[in-house]
Every structure is written in C-alpha cells, then in structure tokens.
Nucleic acid binder design. Structure first.
Lengths: 340, 340
DNA sequence: TACAGTCAAGATAGCGCTATCTTGACTCTC
DNA sequence: GAGAGTCAAGATAGCGCTATCTTGACTGTA
C-alpha cells in the first residue's frame, strides 16, 4: 500500500514547521505569532518571516481547543430583513475583523425563545465576546450568559443598572422629542402607530405618551399597536384603518420608517395631503426617507456608531480592562423634512 | 493552594463522561451521537440518554480538529445592504441550521479582491461546503477553491459549463423579457440605467440590448452605467441626467428597484407622468415596489428559492452524492404594474 | 470441527495548537 | 561571591474529539 504523506490532518503547514524553519521551539513560535510581549523581537521577526515563507495560517480549531477560547464574537440581532442592523453589523465587522476576530451572526427574528436557543448553540463555540440587542430576554438566557462569564455589550438601549455594559441611546427620549416636535407644529390630535412590538418600540411609545401627558393632550391621543412584522404594506393598511376610525387625527408618529413609507404612499393614493392635513414622523431615518414624496421627517439613529462603539467597548472587556465605560449614550437626531 | 477541578478546558461535560455514564467506550459514544450506522440501537439509546442527562453539547473545535472538517458552511455575498441577499441567507439558514450546520457569512462588498481574502480566511476554518455568488472572481480565488476541493454551489447565475453546480436563473433572459415588454407597450426609445456593475447587472443589460437589436431599435437606445453603489438617491440623479440629455426617452429599464424608486420620486417631483410619458421597469421586485406611486413594474427574482435549492444541493454534495443535478434554473417573473 | 468471513465495539494515536511548569542564563544586592 | 530575583525560552502535557487499526464474538460452510 502506498504510504500517504498525511493520512489525517489538513496538509497545510503547521506551527511546528514554522518553528523548525525559524530555528526556535514551537511554543516560542506560538508566542511570537500571538504577539506575546516576552519574546525577543529578533525571534519574533524570524518566526513571522518563516510563517510568511511557508504561507502558514493558524488553525482556529486547534487554537480554540487548546485555549478553551475562540477568536469569535457572537452578534445577536432581532432581524436582518431591514437595513437597520445591517449597518450595525458592518460597523462591528469593520472594527473586529482587522483584529483577527470572526463574527458569528445570529438572527433571532424578534423571538426570545429563538434567541435562547441561539445563545445555547453559540456558547458551544466558546466565543470570546458577545454583542446583544437590548435587555429583554428569557430568564434562561440570562442565566446562561451569567454562568459563562463571556464579556458582552448590549446595544441599542441604555441600561438602567450599572452592572452591564451598553451602547445606544434613549428610546424613550426619542419618542418624547417626536411628541414635542408635533406639538410645536400645532398638532394636538396625535397617534402612535407601531408594529413589531419589541422593547424598543414600546419604549418609544412610552416616551411619546409621557410628553403628550406633560402637554395635557394624552387623552386625545390614539395608539395603534400590532404585533405583526413591520412592512411598507402594513403601514398603508394601518394608516387607512386609523383614518377610518379617527378622521380628525392631525399627526402620526410611526415606530419605524417602513410603516411611514407605506402610509405616505397610501396617503398620496387617497389624496390626503401630507403634511397639510396630517403630519408624519418616522423613526430610524432610512436612506430612502430623504427622497420620498414628501420627504419624511424622521429620527436618525446612530446605527453604525452603535456597532462601532459596542465593538470597541467589547475589545476593552476582552482585553481585561476594568476601566471600560459602562454605558455610552450616542444620542439621536430629529431630521425635520417636508412631511412635518 | 486549592486544587481546581479543571485548570484547563471548558468545565462542560465531555464525551468521555457521556461514555462512562452510558457504560460504553468513548468512541462508541462518539459514533452513536453522530448516527454512525454500525452502532447497536440499544447503545445509541443509552448514549443519547446519557448525553441528555448530562446536558452534553459537542465541542465543535475538538470535532473540527480531529476530523479536519468543520460543520460550517461559508456563504459569500456581494452585499448585505439591501434585502436581496438577506432573503437568500434566511432560506439557506432555514435549510442548514436544523441539520446542525453553522453558517459563516462573508460580505465582499462587490470586490473580487475582498472576496479572495475572505476565501483565504474562511478556508482556514475547514468548511464542509461553500455557497458563492456568481462566477466572476479572481484567478487566485478559483485556484484556492479548486485546490481545497470543498463542495460548492454557485448562486444567482447559471453556469455555462458542466463542471460546476449552480442555482439561479438567466439574467440575460430577464433583461430580454423586459425589453420585449417595453416594446409591446409601444415604447421605442429605450434606456438601460445601471449602477453597481457586477456581472449580473452587465448580463441583464446584454439581454436587454440583444432583444432591442432583434427588434431593430438598438441604435436608438441609451445606456447609462455608473460603477457607484446603487441607491435611491442615485436613481433620482441618473434619471434627471437621462432626462436632460435624452428628453425623448419613453421607457427605462433600471438594473434594480432601488434606482427605480429614486427615479419614481424624482419623476413625481418634476411632474413627469409615469407611465404616460415614460415607462419604468425595475428589477428584483422588492416588497416596496408593489406599493410605490405608481406601483412599479419589476422582475421578481426567486431569491429565497435560490438559497433553499442551493443549500439542498450543497447538502447532497456534502453527502457525497454524484447524482446531484448540476444546474437548477428557477426562472423569474415579470410583475406588470402601474409604472409600465 | 476447523476455517474464513462478518461485524460491533474497543484500544490507540493523534489532529495542531497553547497553558503551565521548568530551566538556565543573567542581573542585582549586601 | 552566595543568595535571591528576573526573565526569555523550552519541555511537557494536554484540550475533546475522531480516524484507523485491532479485537473478539459470532456466523456459515465444507
């Protein structure tokens, strides 16, 4: 029988070969490539040259097995179907990938149960860090996260307690800003139209109603909430329903721009002048919102910035920094345009 | 000094513990959990019970290291910034995740060089399969893929040769269908407006022009191509430029719906009646296109179906099937709406 | 009864790295 | 100049699995 060069294994160069070529021990080569500071710079250069000459690429499985910690960061988002989290993911990637981290993306489709299963599954990969969306999850999820002690940063909302790290902005304040804006335009008969009722959508509504209460017009306000996923189509339907049931509504805050876009199309179709008869305000400021007819007033949310800062904060935590800031508030901005 | 239970390792139950509890050897436990058919069903039951009792979860790093093959499938897409590939990714996930595969998503931002780097990087994870977008990549990328022999399926386009597997539809035919539709509406002065010039966008344009040539109106056609990323804003700008330079254009084929949406907004703003003066046709049929004013005629592409079939085909290849179909044509559909 | 053939189960030996302990050369101090 | 302290480099021993070879019980045949 013919003797194979390698009956098992990948056939790719290994650390042992790099070490041999560099004339050092394997563990020194390992340390050199990981930039462990106790290695003589001369040896570091020899090892890195050897690695390059051989085209050596570390085997992540072996690394993970030996160190009981991977170079992966898990990011859990509630949806990929809209651009919101894509921009955040891109920003996270831009920070972490150049530093050698792999990113495992989990989409839990706004389901706490699905998120719990993802957490369970991804923890088996021994990630070195996790980026999570918000704070609203199952008890079991929380226990799993606490038990493993993997560094983590929560995105999009700000924590009220001091024991977790978060990067985001105040969803409630954003809702209140929208309310005050509509009031400043002389609107008094206001509505909050929401779908996909996650914690953040609810918080926006709370802030909105809080501000209306302060202005004494809450009793005349209307709230439409449906649990269905947001879509352009749903926005049109909800607008139509609202118009039928409450024809005197003069200002609407949509929980996101998708709904607002659908409502804009429907308003145009029905000949309802926006903003003359009804003022529209959206949320998230999707790129399209600056171009619709009329252009949509919306809350610009720092989606990319949240990803970037969360990733940087996580890097500090992975590096063992105790001085890392607990919470980073990145704020938001009301983009006032033609719709109100 | 206090003796630790485990100074290294994860602290989680291992296969050895499962085997001990089940009263079999470790390798039998390993085989039982992987459903290797040579194990006595009684032993399989004992092992699976023991695993459940201990809350055992396999360590993927150890698996990958020992078998030189991970349970990961790499999916490389040119963009995440629009919904196109998200739907494909969701469908892939729905097929592969329940079967225990992990999905590594790589976004190469329409850059062949970036794709090459991603391929290099992801191959170090020893994926058991790859799903790629199209056929247009660097020579080095091709060599890497060939050298490793990892099963792969190409998505979105159909291969012209018989040596690779592909799932998609004919981009050229889709372009030709649009051309014939516009001609059937009596339009003769036609334009193709394209951005983000990847291979598929070019193929659509080729099919469009081929059909115009067959109808003898190619010499009056206009083509606007820019390499910039597609966006709603760009669609408006390109429409405006087109209108200035060629005021007699009476039909436009946009290479994607984003551009068409932007042009629709711009047309409305400038009082250009669509479809009365100019007919618009988009591509991809994004969810919003059925709701714009006017509703957009577009080519509906089988994005989710491509993902699903590609994943299924890949599963066959991973399983060693030689009988797997080489190419699956899923077609497309012209959705005729108000814009033309 | 003896023999080859079959097959489930086990023993053994890694996969390619890194944690940990040890070594030995070198400094510094009194 | 002996002892303690420092520090880069190496030896050793796994991490938790699976590929591969081996074993031994069992079958069927002549």
């Amino acid at each position: 029988m013919i003797r194979r060069e390698a009956s098992r294994g990948t056939g790719r160069p290994t650390l042992a070969e790099v070490a041999k070529l560099a004339g050092v021990s394997q563990i020194t080569a390992s340390r050199a490539l990981r930039n462990v500071p106790t290695v003589d710079p001369e040896n570091v250069a020899k090892v890195k040259d050897a690695a390059k000459a051989l085209g050596y690429v570390p085997n992540p499985a072996a690394r993970t097995l030996a160190s009981a910690r991977s170079q992966s960061v898990v990011v859990l988002v509630p949806a990929l179907a809209n651009q919101l989290f894509i921009e955040t993911l891109e920003a996270i990637h831009a920070v972490l990938h150049p530093r050698g981290f792999e990113i495992l993306i989990g989409n839990f489709h706004y389901s706490k149960e699905e998120e719990e299963e993802l957490i369970r599954n991804y923890l088996s990969f021994q990630p070195c860090g996790m980026l999570l969306t918000g704070f609203d999850r199952t008890e079991a999820s929380l226990r799993l996260l606490e038990a493993t002690g993997v560094p983590r940063v929560h995105m999009m909302e700000l924590s009220r307690t001091e024991d977790v790290h978060s990067v985001g902005f105040s969803q409630e304040d954003a809702g209140a800003v929208v309310a005050r804006h509509l009031l400043s335009k002389g609107r008094r008969r206001l509505a909050y139209v929401a779908a996909q009722l996650d914690a953040r959508v609810v918080q926006r509504g709370e802030g909105f109603k809080r501000a209306l209460a302060e202005a004494g017009v809450l009793d005349r306000a209307v709230e439409i909430k449906v649990a269905d996923p947001s879509s352009v189509e749903l926005g049109g339907e909800l607008f139509q329903a609202l118009l039928n049931d409450h024809p005197d509504i003069d200002g609407i805050f949509f929980c996101n721009d998708d709904l607002a876009h659908g409502a804009l199309f429907e308003a145009q179709r029905r000949g309802v002048p926006v903003p003359e008869r009804i003022t529209f305000v959206g949320f998230n400021d999707l790129p399209m919102s600056a171009h619709t007819v009329p252009r949509l007033t919306s809350i610009r949310t720092p989606r990319a910035e949240v990803g970037e800062h969360a990733a940087r904060l996580l890097l500090q935590l992975i590096g063992g920094s105790e001085t890392a800031r607990k919470s980073i508030d990145l704020g938001f901005e009301l983009m006032v345009r033609e719709s109100g």
